[in-house]
Computed example of a mutant assay.
Amino acid sequence: MRKHCLAIVWGLAMIGSHALAQPKSDEDVITAMEQTWVRATAVGDKETVRELLDDSYIERTPTGATRTKEDVLQAPPPSMTSTQDLDDLIVVVRGDTASVTGTNRYRAAPGVTPVDYVFVDAFQKREGVWRIVRSQMARRGGELSK
Rank of each mutant, 00 (worst) to 15 (best):
M80R: 12
M1W: 11
Y57S: 14
I8C: 10
M80P: 04
W37G: 14
Y106E: 15
T66A: 12
Q124C: 12
T63H: 07
L144H: 03
S25L: 03
F119T: 13
P114Q: 04
C5W: 08
L86V: 04
A13D: 09
W10S: 06
Q35N: 09
G44C: 04
Q74H: 04
H4I: 13
I58R: 04
P114V: 06
M137Y: 06
A108F: 11
R94M: 10
P114G: 13
I30F: 01
I90D: 12
K46T: 05
R94V: 03
W130N: 06
A40N: 13
R134P: 01
L12V: 00
A109P: 02
V29Y: 00
S135W: 02
N104F: 14
S99M: 03
T103V: 07
T48Q: 10
N104S: 09
V129R: 09
L12D: 12
G111C: 10
H18N: 07
L20W: 12
G111D: 05
R2T: 12
R134F: 15
C5S: 08
R131Q: 04
I132H: 01
S25H: 13
R105I: 09
V43Q: 08
R60L: 00
D88R: 10
S56C: 04
D26F: 03
S135P: 02
R134N: 06
T66Q: 10
T97L: 12
E59H: 01
G64V: 01
Q35V: 04
D45K: 14
A40S: 11
L144P: 06
Q136Y: 00
W10E: 06
C5R: 08
S79G: 03
A42P: 02
D54W: 00
G44T: 09
F123A: 04
S145R: 11
K24P: 01
V9T: 08
M33V: 10
L6N: 07
T31H: 15
Y117I: 11
A109F: 07
W130S: 07
E47N: 15
V9P: 00
E59W: 01
A42N: 08
A138P: 03
C5Q: 09
L73F: 04
T36P: 01
G64Y: 01
V29L: 05
V72H: 00
Y117C: 04
Q84L: 10
P76I: 08
V112Y: 05
I132V: 08
G128N: 13
V120H: 05
R67M: 02
V91A: 13
N104H: 03
D55R: 15
K69C: 10
G102A: 07
A13H: 10
E143N: 14
T97A: 14
G64C: 02
R39D: 13
A32S: 03
N104T: 13
Q74T: 01
D28C: 01
R39W: 00
I8N: 11
V38A: 02
L6T: 11
V72S: 00
S82W: 01
T48C: 13
W37V: 01
W10F: 02
Q35K: 10
R60T: 00
V93G: 13
V43C: 03
S145C: 15
Q22S: 09
V93A: 05
A75Q: 13
S17E: 07
S135R: 09
L73S: 02
A32Q: 02
C5L: 12
G11F: 06
